[in-house]
Nucleic acid binder design. Sequence first.
DNA 1: GATATAATCAACCAGTTAGTTAAATTTATG
DNA 2: CATAAATTTAACTAACTGGTTGATTATATC
Lengths: 216, 216
Amino acid sequence: MAKQKRDAAATRSKIIQNAMELFAKKGFDGVSVDEVAAASQINKAMIFYYFKNKAGLYEAVMQGVLDAIYEEIVEADKCCDNTLGELKAFIATYASFAKRYPYFPALLLRELSDSGAHLPELMFESMKKLFVLLSGILEKGEREGVFKEVIPMIVHFMIIGTLNLYVTTQSLRKRVYEEDGLDTCCGCEIEEIAEYIYKKILLMLEVDNEKNICCS
Amino acid sequence: MAKQKRDAAATRSKIIQNAMELFAKKGFDGVSVDEVAAASQINKAMIFYYFKNKAGLYEAVMQGVLDAIYEEIVEADKCCDNTLGELKAFIATYASFAKRYPYFPALLLRELSDSGAHLPELMFESMKKLFVLLSGILEKGEREGVFKEVIPMIVHFMIIGTLNLYVTTQSLRKRVYEEDGLDTCCGCEIEEIAEYIYKKILLMLEVDNEKNICCS
DNA sequence: GATATAATCAACCAGTTAGTTAAATTTATG
DNA sequence: CATAAATTTAACTAACTGGTTGATTATATC
Protein backbone atom coordinates (compact mmCIF):
# COMPACT_ATOMS: atom_id res chain seq x y z
CA MET A 1 0.00 0.00 0.00
CA ALA A 2 1.89 3.03 -1.29
CA LYS A 3 1.60 6.31 0.55
CA GLN A 4 -1.45 8.07 -0.76
CA LYS A 5 -1.09 11.51 -2.24
CA ARG A 6 -4.29 12.53 -0.56
CA ASP A 7 -5.42 11.52 2.88
CA ALA A 8 -8.00 13.76 4.42
CA ALA A 9 -7.82 12.24 7.89
CA ALA A 10 -4.04 12.48 7.96
CA THR A 11 -4.08 16.07 6.75
CA ARG A 12 -6.66 16.98 9.34
CA SER A 13 -4.80 15.47 12.24
CA LYS A 14 -1.51 16.90 11.05
CA ILE A 15 -3.08 20.36 11.15
CA ILE A 16 -4.52 19.76 14.63
CA GLN A 17 -1.20 18.55 15.94
CA ASN A 18 0.74 21.56 14.69
CA ALA A 19 -1.98 23.95 15.75
CA MET A 20 -2.00 22.47 19.26
CA GLU A 21 1.71 23.02 19.65
CA LEU A 22 1.56 26.57 18.31
CA PHE A 23 -1.53 27.59 20.30
CA ALA A 24 0.06 26.23 23.47
CA LYS A 25 3.25 28.17 22.88
CA LYS A 26 1.80 31.46 21.68
CA GLY A 27 -1.90 31.53 22.39
CA PHE A 28 -4.85 31.95 20.06
CA ASP A 29 -4.01 35.47 18.94
CA GLY A 30 -0.29 34.84 18.86
CA VAL A 31 -0.59 32.31 16.08
CA SER A 32 -1.56 33.12 12.51
CA VAL A 33 -3.38 30.73 10.22
CA ASP A 34 -0.50 31.09 7.75
CA GLU A 35 1.85 29.90 10.46
CA VAL A 36 -0.17 26.76 11.13
CA ALA A 37 -0.38 26.08 7.40
CA ALA A 38 3.38 26.48 6.96
CA ALA A 39 4.17 24.24 9.92
CA SER A 40 1.80 21.60 8.55
CA GLN A 41 3.14 21.96 5.02
CA ILE A 42 -0.30 22.44 3.57
CA ASN A 43 -2.07 25.29 1.87
CA LYS A 44 -3.74 27.76 4.15
CA ALA A 45 -7.10 27.26 2.50
CA MET A 46 -7.12 23.68 3.80
CA ILE A 47 -7.55 24.99 7.31
CA PHE A 48 -10.70 26.84 6.31
CA TYR A 49 -11.83 23.84 4.32
CA TYR A 50 -11.57 21.51 7.31
CA PHE A 51 -12.32 23.83 10.21
CA LYS A 52 -14.37 26.66 8.72
CA ASN A 53 -12.30 29.36 10.42
CA LYS A 54 -9.52 29.95 12.91
CA ALA A 55 -11.87 29.65 15.87
CA GLY A 56 -13.08 26.32 14.52
CA LEU A 57 -9.54 25.02 14.39
CA TYR A 58 -8.91 26.20 17.93
CA GLU A 59 -12.09 24.58 19.13
CA ALA A 60 -11.18 21.28 17.44
CA VAL A 61 -7.81 21.34 19.19
CA MET A 62 -9.30 22.05 22.60
CA GLN A 63 -12.25 19.73 22.19
CA GLY A 64 -9.94 16.86 21.33
CA VAL A 65 -7.63 17.33 24.24
CA LEU A 66 -10.35 18.05 26.80
CA ASP A 67 -12.37 15.03 25.76
CA ALA A 68 -9.25 12.87 25.87
CA ILE A 69 -8.27 13.80 29.40
CA TYR A 70 -11.80 13.37 30.69
CA GLU A 71 -12.11 9.93 29.14
CA GLU A 72 -8.77 8.83 30.53
CA ILE A 73 -9.60 9.93 34.04
CA VAL A 74 -13.03 8.31 33.96
CA GLU A 75 -11.43 5.10 32.71
CA ALA A 76 -8.71 5.20 35.37
CA ASP A 77 -11.21 5.77 38.14
CA LYS A 78 -13.13 2.65 37.18
CA CYS A 79 -10.25 0.36 38.08
CA CYS A 80 -10.65 1.26 41.74
CA ASP A 81 -13.63 0.84 43.97
CA ASN A 82 -12.25 2.55 47.00
CA THR A 83 -12.20 6.28 47.54
CA LEU A 84 -8.48 6.71 48.11
CA GLY A 85 -7.69 4.73 44.98
CA GLU A 86 -9.98 6.94 42.96
CA LEU A 87 -8.35 10.08 44.29
CA LYS A 88 -4.92 8.69 43.55
CA ALA A 89 -5.99 7.66 40.06
CA PHE A 90 -7.37 11.14 39.41
CA ILE A 91 -4.09 12.82 40.30
CA ALA A 92 -1.85 10.24 38.64
CA THR A 93 -3.86 10.21 35.42
CA TYR A 94 -3.92 13.98 35.18
CA ALA A 95 -0.15 13.98 35.61
CA SER A 96 0.34 11.19 33.12
CA PHE A 97 -1.82 12.98 30.58
CA ALA A 98 0.11 16.22 31.06
CA LYS A 99 3.30 14.30 30.42
CA ARG A 100 2.03 12.77 27.16
CA TYR A 101 0.31 16.00 26.05
CA PRO A 102 2.76 18.61 27.32
CA TYR A 103 0.83 21.31 25.47
CA PHE A 104 -2.34 20.69 27.41
CA PRO A 105 -1.52 22.62 30.61
CA ALA A 106 -0.55 25.76 28.74
CA LEU A 107 -3.67 25.58 26.58
CA LEU A 108 -5.81 25.19 29.67
CA LEU A 109 -4.16 27.95 31.69
CA ARG A 110 -4.50 30.35 28.79
CA GLU A 111 -8.14 29.55 28.33
CA LEU A 112 -8.84 29.95 32.04
CA SER A 113 -7.02 33.28 32.00
CA ASP A 114 -9.73 34.81 29.87
CA SER A 115 -12.53 32.84 31.52
CA GLY A 116 -12.97 30.79 28.39
CA ALA A 117 -13.65 33.80 26.22
CA HIS A 118 -12.77 31.90 23.07
CA LEU A 119 -14.73 28.81 24.02
CA PRO A 120 -17.33 29.67 26.61
CA GLU A 121 -19.48 26.57 26.27
CA LEU A 122 -16.67 24.11 25.79
CA MET A 123 -14.67 25.37 28.73
CA PHE A 124 -17.73 25.56 30.87
CA GLU A 125 -18.72 21.96 30.20
CA SER A 126 -15.19 20.58 30.44
CA MET A 127 -14.32 22.33 33.66
CA LYS A 128 -17.60 21.25 35.13
CA LYS A 129 -17.21 17.61 34.15
CA LEU A 130 -13.75 17.28 35.66
CA PHE A 131 -14.85 19.09 38.79
CA VAL A 132 -17.96 16.95 39.21
CA LEU A 133 -15.78 13.87 38.96
CA LEU A 134 -13.32 14.91 41.66
CA SER A 135 -16.05 16.44 43.73
CA GLY A 136 -17.87 13.11 43.75
CA ILE A 137 -14.82 11.33 45.04
CA LEU A 138 -14.18 13.89 47.75
CA GLU A 139 -17.77 14.03 48.95
CA LYS A 140 -18.04 10.27 49.02
CA GLY A 141 -14.88 10.22 51.11
CA GLU A 142 -16.31 12.78 53.47
CA ARG A 143 -19.52 10.75 53.90
CA GLU A 144 -17.43 7.67 54.60
CA GLY A 145 -15.50 9.59 57.22
CA VAL A 146 -12.26 9.18 55.30
CA PHE A 147 -11.79 12.89 54.51
CA LYS A 148 -12.32 15.82 56.83
CA GLU A 149 -13.17 19.46 56.11
CA VAL A 150 -13.17 19.21 52.36
CA ILE A 151 -13.84 22.16 50.07
CA PRO A 152 -13.88 20.30 46.74
CA MET A 153 -13.38 23.36 44.55
CA ILE A 154 -10.22 24.36 46.38
CA VAL A 155 -8.83 20.83 46.52
CA HIS A 156 -9.49 20.61 42.80
CA PHE A 157 -7.54 23.80 42.18
CA MET A 158 -4.72 22.58 44.40
CA ILE A 159 -4.31 19.47 42.28
CA ILE A 160 -4.66 20.85 38.79
CA GLY A 161 -3.12 24.22 39.66
CA THR A 162 0.02 22.58 40.98
CA LEU A 163 0.38 20.11 38.14
CA ASN A 164 -0.31 22.69 35.45
CA LEU A 165 2.21 25.13 36.87
CA TYR A 166 4.77 22.37 37.24
CA VAL A 167 4.55 21.52 33.56
CA THR A 168 4.32 25.04 32.15
CA THR A 169 7.21 26.38 34.21
CA GLN A 170 9.61 23.66 33.14
CA SER A 171 12.00 25.90 31.22
CA LEU A 172 11.87 28.69 33.79
CA ARG A 173 12.60 26.22 36.57
CA LYS A 174 15.47 24.75 34.67
CA ARG A 175 17.02 28.16 34.22
CA VAL A 176 16.64 29.05 37.89
CA TYR A 177 18.30 25.78 38.78
CA GLU A 178 21.20 26.18 36.38
CA GLU A 179 21.93 29.83 37.13
CA ASP A 180 21.25 29.93 40.85
CA GLY A 181 21.47 26.35 41.99
CA LEU A 182 18.07 26.50 43.66
CA ASP A 183 16.16 23.25 43.94
CA THR A 184 13.32 23.70 41.48
CA CYS A 185 12.52 20.01 41.10
CA CYS A 186 14.15 19.75 37.70
CA GLY A 187 15.27 16.19 38.27
CA CYS A 188 11.80 15.04 39.23
CA GLU A 189 9.54 13.09 36.94
CA ILE A 190 5.97 14.30 37.05
CA GLU A 191 4.90 10.93 38.44
CA GLU A 192 6.90 11.67 41.58
CA ILE A 193 5.26 15.06 41.84
CA ALA A 194 1.86 13.43 41.50
CA GLU A 195 2.75 10.97 44.24
CA TYR A 196 3.93 13.78 46.50
CA ILE A 197 0.75 15.76 45.89
CA TYR A 198 -1.36 12.71 46.64
CA LYS A 199 0.42 12.07 49.93
CA LYS A 200 0.14 15.68 50.95
CA ILE A 201 -3.54 15.79 50.09
CA LEU A 202 -4.10 12.76 52.32
CA LEU A 203 -2.43 14.60 55.20
CA MET A 204 -4.40 17.70 54.37
CA LEU A 205 -7.70 15.87 54.46
CA GLU A 206 -6.68 14.17 57.69
CA VAL A 207 -6.79 10.61 56.41
CA ASP A 208 -5.75 8.97 59.63
CA ASN A 209 -3.84 5.87 58.55
CA GLU A 210 -3.12 3.37 55.83
CA LYS A 211 -5.94 0.96 56.54
CA ASN A 212 -7.46 1.94 53.21
CA ILE A 213 -5.73 0.07 50.43
CA CYS A 214 -5.72 1.42 46.94
CA CYS A 215 -4.90 -0.11 43.60
CA SER A 216 -1.35 -0.04 42.18
CA MET B 1 -7.10 74.20 41.57
CA ALA B 2 -8.84 73.67 38.25
CA LYS B 3 -8.37 70.39 36.42
CA GLN B 4 -5.26 70.59 34.34
CA LYS B 5 -5.54 69.97 30.66
CA ARG B 6 -2.24 68.14 30.68
CA ASP B 7 -0.90 65.78 33.30
CA ALA B 8 1.81 63.45 32.16
CA ALA B 9 1.78 61.25 35.24
CA ALA B 10 -1.98 60.87 35.13
CA THR B 11 -1.95 60.06 31.43
CA ARG B 12 0.77 57.52 31.91
CA SER B 13 -0.97 55.72 34.73
CA LYS B 14 -4.29 55.87 32.91
CA ILE B 15 -2.68 54.06 29.98
CA ILE B 16 -1.10 51.48 32.28
CA GLN B 17 -4.38 50.85 34.05
CA ASN B 18 -6.34 50.27 30.86
CA ALA B 19 -3.55 48.22 29.34
CA MET B 20 -3.39 46.03 32.43
CA GLU B 21 -7.08 45.28 32.22
CA LEU B 22 -6.98 44.55 28.51
CA PHE B 23 -3.81 42.45 28.63
CA ALA B 24 -5.28 40.43 31.49
CA LYS B 25 -8.48 39.79 29.58
CA LYS B 26 -7.08 39.14 26.13
CA GLY B 27 -3.35 38.60 26.36
CA PHE B 28 -0.50 40.49 24.73
CA ASP B 29 -1.37 39.55 21.16
CA GLY B 30 -5.08 39.84 21.72
CA VAL B 31 -4.87 43.55 22.43
CA SER B 32 -4.05 46.20 19.85
CA VAL B 33 -2.34 49.45 20.62
CA ASP B 34 -5.30 51.25 19.07
CA GLU B 35 -7.56 49.49 21.55
CA VAL B 36 -5.53 50.63 24.56
CA ALA B 37 -5.48 54.17 23.18
CA ALA B 38 -9.24 54.19 22.66
CA ALA B 39 -9.93 52.80 26.15
CA SER B 40 -7.65 55.44 27.63
CA GLN B 41 -9.15 58.18 25.49
CA ILE B 42 -5.78 59.33 24.29
CA ASN B 43 -4.04 59.40 20.95
CA LYS B 44 -2.26 56.23 20.01
CA ALA B 45 1.01 58.07 19.54
CA MET B 46 1.07 58.81 23.27
CA ILE B 47 1.66 55.13 23.97
CA PHE B 48 4.77 55.13 21.83
CA TYR B 49 5.78 58.46 23.37
CA TYR B 50 5.65 57.05 26.90
CA PHE B 51 6.53 53.41 26.40
CA LYS B 52 8.52 53.27 23.16
CA ASN B 53 6.55 50.34 21.76
CA LYS B 54 3.87 47.80 22.59
CA ALA B 55 6.36 45.52 24.33
CA GLY B 56 7.51 48.45 26.45
CA LEU B 57 3.96 49.10 27.57
CA TYR B 58 3.49 45.45 28.44
CA GLU B 59 6.72 45.39 30.36
CA ALA B 60 5.75 48.50 32.31
CA VAL B 61 2.44 46.88 33.24
CA MET B 62 4.07 43.64 34.38
CA GLN B 63 7.04 45.29 36.07
CA GLY B 64 4.73 47.48 38.13
CA VAL B 65 2.51 44.69 39.30
CA LEU B 66 5.32 42.20 39.95
CA ASP B 67 7.35 44.72 41.92
CA ALA B 68 4.27 45.70 43.89
CA ILE B 69 3.38 42.20 44.99
CA TYR B 70 6.95 41.39 45.95
CA GLU B 71 7.26 44.53 48.03
CA GLU B 72 3.97 43.88 49.78
CA ILE B 73 4.90 40.34 50.69
CA VAL B 74 8.36 41.32 51.93
CA GLU B 75 6.77 44.04 54.04
CA ALA B 76 4.10 41.70 55.43
CA ASP B 77 6.69 39.10 56.34
CA LYS B 78 8.62 41.60 58.43
CA CYS B 79 5.79 41.98 60.93
CA CYS B 80 6.28 38.39 62.05
CA ASP B 81 9.34 36.81 63.51
CA ASN B 82 8.03 33.29 63.70
CA THR B 83 7.92 30.86 60.84
CA LEU B 84 4.21 30.10 60.87
CA GLY B 85 3.36 33.78 60.91
CA GLU B 86 5.56 34.36 57.92
CA LEU B 87 3.92 31.54 55.99
CA LYS B 88 0.49 32.86 56.87
CA ALA B 89 1.48 36.38 55.87
CA PHE B 90 2.80 35.11 52.53
CA ILE B 91 -0.48 33.42 51.68
CA ALA B 92 -2.73 36.15 53.03
CA THR B 93 -0.80 38.91 51.32
CA TYR B 94 -0.80 37.13 48.01
CA ALA B 95 -4.56 36.70 48.32
CA SER B 96 -5.09 40.28 49.40
CA PHE B 97 -3.03 41.51 46.47
CA ALA B 98 -4.98 39.36 44.04
CA LYS B 99 -8.17 40.88 45.40
CA ARG B 100 -6.98 44.43 44.94
CA TYR B 101 -5.33 43.72 41.57
CA PRO B 102 -7.77 41.21 40.09
CA TYR B 103 -5.95 41.36 36.76
CA PHE B 104 -2.69 40.12 38.23
CA PRO B 105 -3.45 36.37 38.30
CA ALA B 106 -4.51 36.28 34.65
CA LEU B 107 -1.45 38.27 33.61
CA LEU B 108 0.80 35.89 35.52
CA LEU B 109 -0.83 32.69 34.28
CA ARG B 110 -0.63 33.90 30.69
CA GLU B 111 3.01 34.79 31.03
CA LEU B 112 3.82 31.44 32.62
CA SER B 113 1.95 29.68 29.81
CA ASP B 114 4.56 30.76 27.33
CA SER B 115 7.44 30.45 29.80
CA GLY B 116 7.78 34.19 29.92
CA ALA B 117 8.38 34.49 26.20
CA HIS B 118 7.45 38.16 26.17
CA LEU B 119 9.47 39.06 29.24
CA PRO B 120 12.14 36.45 29.77
CA GLU B 121 14.31 38.38 32.22
CA LEU B 122 11.51 40.03 34.14
CA MET B 123 9.57 36.80 34.64
CA PHE B 124 12.71 34.94 35.51
CA GLU B 125 13.74 37.40 38.20
CA SER B 126 10.25 37.88 39.59
CA MET B 127 9.41 34.22 39.80
CA LYS B 128 12.76 33.57 41.40
CA LYS B 129 12.40 36.30 44.01
CA LEU B 130 8.99 35.14 45.17
CA PHE B 131 10.14 31.54 45.25
CA VAL B 132 13.29 32.37 47.22
CA LEU B 133 11.16 34.18 49.75
CA LEU B 134 8.76 31.30 50.36
CA SER B 135 11.53 28.77 50.09
CA GLY B 136 13.41 30.54 52.87
CA ILE B 137 10.40 30.37 55.15
CA LEU B 138 9.80 26.69 54.42
CA GLU B 139 13.42 25.66 54.84
CA LYS B 140 13.74 27.59 58.07
CA GLY B 141 10.64 25.81 59.30
CA GLU B 142 12.11 22.46 58.35
CA ARG B 143 15.36 23.22 60.21
CA GLU B 144 13.33 24.24 63.25
CA GLY B 145 11.44 20.97 63.06
CA VAL B 146 8.15 22.75 62.48
CA PHE B 147 7.62 21.44 58.92
CA LYS B 148 8.16 17.94 57.64
CA GLU B 149 8.93 16.63 54.15
CA VAL B 150 8.85 19.95 52.37
CA ILE B 151 9.41 20.35 48.66
CA PRO B 152 9.39 24.14 48.47
CA MET B 153 8.77 24.38 44.72
CA ILE B 154 5.65 22.24 44.92
CA VAL B 155 4.32 23.96 48.03
CA HIS B 156 4.89 27.25 46.23
CA PHE B 157 2.87 26.06 43.26
CA MET B 158 0.14 24.78 45.54
CA ILE B 159 -0.29 28.20 47.07
CA ILE B 160 -0.06 30.45 44.04
CA GLY B 161 -1.63 27.90 41.68
CA THR B 162 -4.71 27.60 43.86
CA LEU B 163 -5.12 31.31 44.47
CA ASN B 164 -4.52 32.24 40.85
CA LEU B 165 -7.04 29.71 39.60
CA TYR B 166 -9.56 30.80 42.19
CA VAL B 167 -9.43 34.38 40.97
CA THR B 168 -9.28 33.71 37.25
CA THR B 169 -12.14 31.23 37.26
CA GLN B 170 -14.51 33.54 39.06
CA SER B 171 -16.99 33.96 36.22
CA LEU B 172 -16.84 30.30 35.20
CA ARG B 173 -17.44 29.23 38.79
CA LYS B 174 -20.35 31.58 39.12
CA ARG B 175 -21.98 30.13 36.03
CA VAL B 176 -21.49 26.56 37.20
CA TYR B 177 -23.08 27.50 40.49
CA GLU B 178 -26.05 29.27 38.96
CA GLU B 179 -26.82 26.70 36.29
CA ASP B 180 -26.03 23.50 38.14
CA GLY B 181 -26.17 24.43 41.77
CA LEU B 182 -22.72 22.98 42.44
CA ASP B 183 -20.75 24.49 45.29
CA THR B 184 -18.00 26.39 43.54
CA CYS B 185 -17.14 28.67 46.45
CA CYS B 186 -18.87 31.65 44.92
CA GLY B 187 -19.93 33.05 48.26
CA CYS B 188 -16.42 32.89 49.66
CA GLU B 189 -14.21 35.89 50.05
CA ILE B 190 -10.63 35.23 48.99
CA GLU B 191 -9.50 35.85 52.56
CA GLU B 192 -11.41 32.76 53.63
CA ILE B 193 -9.81 30.77 50.84
CA ALA B 194 -6.40 31.98 51.96
CA GLU B 195 -7.17 30.96 55.53
CA TYR B 196 -8.32 27.51 54.36
CA ILE B 197 -5.21 27.05 52.26
CA TYR B 198 -3.03 28.06 55.20
CA LYS B 199 -4.71 25.58 57.54
CA LYS B 200 -4.46 22.81 54.98
CA ILE B 201 -0.81 23.53 54.34
CA LEU B 202 -0.13 23.26 58.07
CA LEU B 203 -1.75 19.83 58.08
CA MET B 204 0.14 18.92 54.95
CA LEU B 205 3.47 19.86 56.47
CA GLU B 206 2.56 18.01 59.64
CA VAL B 207 2.67 20.97 61.99
CA ASP B 208 1.77 19.12 65.14
CA ASN B 209 -0.09 21.68 67.24
CA GLU B 210 -0.80 25.31 67.96
CA LYS B 211 2.06 26.00 70.29
CA ASN B 212 3.44 28.33 67.65
CA ILE B 213 1.68 31.67 67.81
CA CYS B 214 1.52 33.90 64.79
CA CYS B 215 0.63 37.51 64.31
CA SER B 216 -2.96 38.60 63.57
C1' DG C 1 5.17 88.37 27.54
C1' DA C 2 8.63 85.79 24.96
C1' DT C 3 10.47 81.31 24.64
C1' DA C 4 11.85 76.74 25.32
C1' DT C 5 10.08 72.40 26.41
C1' DA C 6 6.90 68.83 27.41
C1' DA C 7 2.62 66.80 25.99
C1' DT C 8 -0.79 65.82 22.52
C1' DC C 9 -2.74 64.89 18.11
C1' DA C 10 -4.32 63.67 13.04
C1' DA C 11 -2.81 61.59 9.22
C1' DC C 12 -0.08 58.40 7.32
C1' DC C 13 2.71 53.96 6.07
C1' DA C 14 4.16 49.37 5.05
C1' DG C 15 3.40 44.80 6.48
C1' DT C 16 0.28 41.25 8.21
C1' DT C 17 -4.18 39.31 9.18
C1' DA C 18 -8.27 36.16 8.55
C1' DG C 19 -10.88 34.75 5.11
C1' DT C 20 -12.46 34.08 -0.20
C1' DT C 21 -12.56 32.41 -4.78
C1' DA C 22 -12.29 29.95 -8.77
C1' DA C 23 -9.65 26.87 -10.95
C1' DA C 24 -6.88 22.48 -10.83
C1' DT C 25 -5.98 17.85 -9.55
C1' DT C 26 -6.75 13.58 -7.46
C1' DT C 27 -9.82 9.84 -6.19
C1' DA C 28 -13.84 6.94 -6.07
C1' DT C 29 -17.67 4.96 -8.76
C1' DG C 30 -20.69 3.54 -12.35
C1' DC D 1 -13.34 5.53 -19.40
C1' DA D 2 -16.37 9.17 -18.00
C1' DT D 3 -18.20 11.65 -14.58
C1' DA D 4 -18.89 13.40 -10.08
C1' DA D 5 -17.17 14.31 -5.66
C1' DA D 6 -13.47 15.29 -2.59
C1' DT D 7 -9.20 17.50 -1.94
C1' DT D 8 -5.69 20.91 -2.87
C1' DT D 9 -3.81 25.06 -4.80
C1' DA D 10 -2.29 30.05 -5.97
C1' DA D 11 -3.79 34.43 -6.09
C1' DC D 12 -6.53 37.76 -4.12
C1' DT D 13 -8.90 41.22 -0.84
C1' DA D 14 -10.37 44.25 2.70
C1' DA D 15 -9.47 45.26 7.23
C1' DC D 16 -6.28 45.72 10.80
C1' DT D 17 -1.49 45.82 12.78
C1' DG D 18 2.50 48.28 15.12
C1' DG D 19 4.86 52.18 14.42
C1' DT D 20 6.25 57.11 12.41
C1' DT D 21 6.01 61.95 11.35
C1' DG D 22 5.50 66.70 11.67
C1' DA D 23 2.61 69.95 13.20
C1' DT D 24 0.12 71.85 17.30
C1' DT D 25 -0.97 73.12 21.87
C1' DA D 26 -0.30 73.85 26.77
C1' DT D 27 2.80 74.84 30.54
C1' DA D 28 6.64 76.46 33.23
C1' DT D 29 10.50 79.75 33.51
C1' DC D 30 12.96 83.79 32.85
